[in-house]
Design a protein around this nucleic acid. Sequence first.
DNA 1: GATACAGTTCATTGGAGACTGTACTGTTAA
DNA 2: TTAACAGTACAGTCTCCAATGAACTGTATC
Lengths: 226, 226
Amino acid sequence: MDKDIQQVTSLIGDPVRASILWALTDGRAYTATELSVTINTSPQNMSMHLSKLIKGELLTVESQGRYKYYRIAKPEVAHALEAIACLVPEDKHKKKTIQPEEKAIRYCRSCYGHLAGKVGVLVNEALLAQKIIQPVDNLYAVTKKGEAFFADLKIDIALLQKQRRIFAKPCLDWSERKHHLAGSLGTALLNSMLELDYFRRSKNSRTILVTGKGQTQLFQKLKISV
Amino acid sequence: MDKDIQQVTSLIGDPVRASILWALTDGRAYTATELSVTINTSPQNMSMHLSKLIKGELLTVESQGRYKYYRIAKPEVAHALEAIACLVPEDKHKKKTIQPEEKAIRYCRSCYGHLAGKVGVLVNEALLAQKIIQPVDNLYAVTKKGEAFFADLKIDIALLQKQRRIFAKPCLDWSERKHHLAGSLGTALLNSMLELDYFRRSKNSRTILVTGKGQTQLFQKLKISV
DNA sequence: GATACAGTTCATTGGAGACTGTACTGTTAA
DNA sequence: TTAACAGTACAGTCTCCAATGAACTGTATC
């Protein structure tokens, strides 16, 4: 038993691995590259640490194309990390400023070119509710009504469908645990909305800001209040 | 915050320090030499590690003559360790032949002053089933019926509730993966049952033995067969 | 007093393992 | 097809820090 505990603690004990685990405690999944950027270490090093965490059954991986999404393996891991966080000496807690950036990234962000977060999920739900898109065996198809909607946003559906890339599909949103729109249509939609100044990207972050114009347009077109 | 977590994890991460902490999770105090013998390392090395744990506020010392008694600084530390113990990969439990002493410690032990192991979990389940305690937002409360039960064991509920320490809460048991009773009520219950000779501590181990009297009383009072 | 023991301090050493550079596989996009 | 990118594998380097030996303080017992 003692040996087992030692193995787990030395796994958690490394500073880089501790940072990885801590970054993942919110339950969202990140790619190896994303993690290596936020933790500020090389991709090879990150790969090494991630494989150790996988082997120790603290993380799980999910492959999506050339990306690999890493996430906490089970609730017990997050629980243990929270328990460890409680052991930080008291005097260190002086500066308990809760960062608003965390809140922002959960609200609206880009996810490999398409819209994610709470806003991304709301948009997807609205597109379905208004029958602009509809599910067809695990993918999405654009309806007659939808064609007009996308044309209005200067999106050429026919052109997108000619591409080899998947046209439109649901993608599980890590912060909301619901689906948002992915595929070339998802990318085109976000690009168009950025172009039209509904949204603006923020620097050095995946966070996306909703403009005043975006608020009014999203309400008019999709009946969404953001 | 990230730096703080790293400091705590690398403190826990060292194999020797992990063993020290694990050896102290029963809440009892040990001298430096005792620890260096059980952990099997030199006194100087033990001294070095202990001073780091003290500095990190995970342990406290108490001097008595030429001896120094080391113990876990606060319940949160024991809690974090138990949480970490839950992360030991499943297959490790199965394939290794569990030694008799290991079996004993899994069956019944003390965990920072309260009862743990299979017996600890059974007792907790019985207390809940018989409506002696009931869950109230992640804590436990004593029912009317329960007051009589604890009074019978010479436990003064009112006195315990006046303390600053948490009165009663569930604590995840590493060997059973279920909850046992923690908090001042849990401590009082174990002390009372030791006093009444339901249980006896074994020397140099966290293992607790159930006496004949304990077996009959636990069956009479809680309908538990141990 | 002398002796034995608990625990600590400090300089030195040794080695585990984290990191880097290079080179590779597999996937996506044009 | 080619190019770009995500991620991995491996060998070599380097660095931190645990462990050691020797010497010390302080306490108990004779």
